[in-house]
């Protein structure tokens, strides 16, 4: 922005500023997107080519073999299904229980509301990793939920950020709408189902997107709780492949990158298709409360 220092007073930033801003934005986008491009290119190379020319597609060196190779080693479909069950369970729990909590935190007056909201904010700054050891003892040892999908889902069941986003959306609904329904004799559950939920439908997609990132990408917890390979989400089985072949392999990078593409693709696709439900206002309200 220093290029615009010299612009005369009381004038909009000149052309120099606009050009500089464009350059910054495009350079940023390149830095963020290049590794993804390189991930795809690398996953299609027959022999890994890390020279500068290797960054461009070379017809003679393209193959889908790497996808077959990684699939035969870690079972991509099993991994995807496990990731799907893990993520789906968390989204279901968050949407059902999180919406109920968000509704009560905004619309209903009850003792303990302030404390519950403060807890929802506080929970977001507790490093989850600190809880890893006690949660492992409780869930794997005491409850015997090691190597189960339930054990995987439990610590993530209700996303607190989602609770706060639901609350924020419900707060924007005029109180009169709820009161009118109550005067007509609707029960609280009916008010929620017939009045509140239809009004916050846009929030639902935002919440699903935000909740999706957590379990789909989570590594540490499912890694601790699943030793059985047939139950591991894709992030865990791919990580195990990376850490076990990193030392030995002759050419593992193509297979690793193919696995990485399969793991990344659903999240990236989802966020491109629904990008307008993942905007700064949603995130701002979600984190700040």
């Amino acid at each position: 922005m220093s290029a615009t220092v010299a612009t005369p007073k009381r004038e909009k930033p000149g052309r120099g500023g606009t050009v500089l801003r464009g350059v910054v934005l495009i350079a940023g986008a390149l830095v963020f997107l290049f590794p993804f491009y390189y991930m795809v290119i690398g996953s299609l190379q027959r022999t890994p080519d890390s020279s500068v020319t290797g960054a461009f597609p070379n017809i003679a060196n393209l193959t889908l073999d790497n996808y077959e190779a990684i699939n035969s080693r870690i079972g991509l479909l099993t991994g995807l299904v496990n990731s799907g069950i893990f993520t789906g369970g968390v989204i279901l729990g968050t949407v059902v229980f999180g919406m109920l909590a968000g509704y009560t935190l905004s619309v209903l007056q009850w003792r303990g509301r302030g404390v519950t909201f403060a807890l929802a904010l506080l929970v977001q700054v507790v490093p989850f990793q600190l809880l890893m050891i006690p949660l492992y003892v409780l869930i794997a040892r005491d409850y015997g939920l090691a190597d189960t999908h339930l054990g995987m889902i439990l610590p993530f069941l209700i996303n607190s950020t989602a609770v706060i986003i639901f609350r924020q959306y419900f707060l924007q609904v005029p109180k009169e709408l709820f009161d009118a329904a109550r005067i007509d004799g609707a029960s609280e559950l009916r008010v929620l189902w017939n009045v509140a939920i239809p009004l916050v439908r846009p929030a639902l997609l935002t919440v699903i997107l935000i909740t999706f990132i957590g379990p789909w990408n989570e590594f540490l917890w499912p890694f601790l709780i699943t030793k059985d390979a047939s139950l591991q989400p894709l992030a865990v089985s791919l990580a195990n492949y990376i850490s076990s072949v990193a030392a030995s392999a002759a050419n593992p990078s193509g297979a690793v990158l193919a696995g990485a593409v399969v793991l990344a693709a659903p999240a990236v696709a989802l966020f491109i298709v629904f990008q307008r439900y993942f905007t700064s206002t949603d995130i701002g309200s979600g984190v700040k409360g």
């Binding site: 940023g28 997107l33 890994p48 690793v256 990485a260 966020f271 491109i272």
Partner: peptide, 30 residues
């Protein structure tokens, strides 16, 4: 476009991105 380009790494699994960084930053990497 820029907004999506900037948050794509954030929504992608660390495990997947580690794969490509290992490739980029290895001894004879790009």
């Amino acid at each position: 476009f820029f907004r999506v380009a900037y948050y794509v790494p954030y929504v992608t699994a660390s495990v997947a991105i580690v794969g490509v960084w290992l490739f980029l930053f290895s001894g004879n990497g790009l």
